[in-house]
Simulated assay, not measured.
Amino acid sequence: MLRKTLFGWMAMLLLAGCTSDQQFRPENLAKRDLDFVTDTHIQQLDTLLKSLMKKLYLRNPRELSKTADATIESRIDLIFSLPPPLIFDELGGKESIDAMLLGLDPEYQGDRVFAVMVGLAGMLDQAYDNKEEFFILDTLDQQKLYNSARNLEVLAWRLKTRVDTNGTLLLLTNHLDPADPNLSFERLFGKMIALQDNLAMIVSQRNGRTINLILHGLATSFLAI
């Protein structure tokens, strides 16, 4: 058994050396398997968030026009080029859930897409304790990860239901025309929810701690992170 285990580890090391030479960093020696998994989840979330932000601007170009000389790329870079926490003067210092609520307030006159995305990205950052990379001494809270997944569900629902005084949606997302449906927003949210739920389960099993579950569909308000 020991001999097989040693051969297994040797094979893994050789495979890693053959495929990841250019990606190896000395810092990686201070990482566990869970840290690599967590880093991958964070990278995937960032990719999905950027795609969501771009789609929201394309569906709601009036929001982009509220900021002089702004482009979709410049607004995306403004969020994702900064380390957490994400705090901006144009949002009155509001972040995380408060920024999302601001963006979906019928009285708000600013860039709703920016407010929602600052809030969403900040809320997810908080689920990872505002860390952009994980190492052996870092820890994760399975409940925060689980709650963030429920908050994604709440946001997806609110985007489809929040309207102004004229009954017009504050932000357009899915296009439900039977002749030409577009459910790309649903798919993006579904992927992010699955990522957070998956990692919450992994961390729960690793920590030996249970998650306080909420029955599917019952979360209609944002949960604390």
Rank of each mutant, 00 (worst) to 15 (best):
R3F: 08
R3G: 00
L6S: 08
G8Q: 05
A16K: 09
T19I: 14
T19E: 02
S20G: 05
D21V: 14
Q23G: 01
E27Q: 15
E27A: 15
N28T: 06
F36P: 01
T38C: 06
D39R: 02
T40M: 10
H41R: 09
I42N: 00
L49S: 04
L49M: 08
K50D: 00
L56P: 02
R59I: 12
E63C: 09
E63A: 06
K66D: 00
K66M: 05
A68F: 14
I72W: 08
E73Y: 03
E73M: 07
S74M: 08
S74F: 07
R75I: 04
D77E: 08
L78I: 07
L78W: 04
S81Y: 04
L82V: 12
L82Y: 04
L82A: 05
L86R: 04
E90I: 15
G92T: 07
D98Y: 03
D98S: 12
M100T: 07
M100C: 03
M100L: 05
L102W: 07
E107C: 10
Q109F: 05
M117K: 03
M117T: 06
G119M: 11
L120M: 07
A121L: 06
A121E: 02
Q126E: 01
N130A: 03
E133Q: 14
F134G: 03
I136D: 01
L140I: 13
D141H: 14
L145M: 06
L145I: 13
N147E: 00
N147V: 09
R150N: 08
E153Y: 11
L155H: 06
A156G: 06
K160F: 00
T165I: 15
L170Y: 05
L171G: 09
L172M: 11
N174K: 13
D177I: 15
D177Q: 12
P178H: 07
P178K: 12
A179T: 13
L183D: 03
K191L: 13
D197A: 14
D197M: 15
N207I: 14
N207Q: 10
N207A: 09
N207E: 06
I211Q: 01
N212L: 12
I214N: 06
L215F: 11
H216L: 14
H216I: 15
H216W: 10
L218C: 06
A219T: 09
T220H: 10
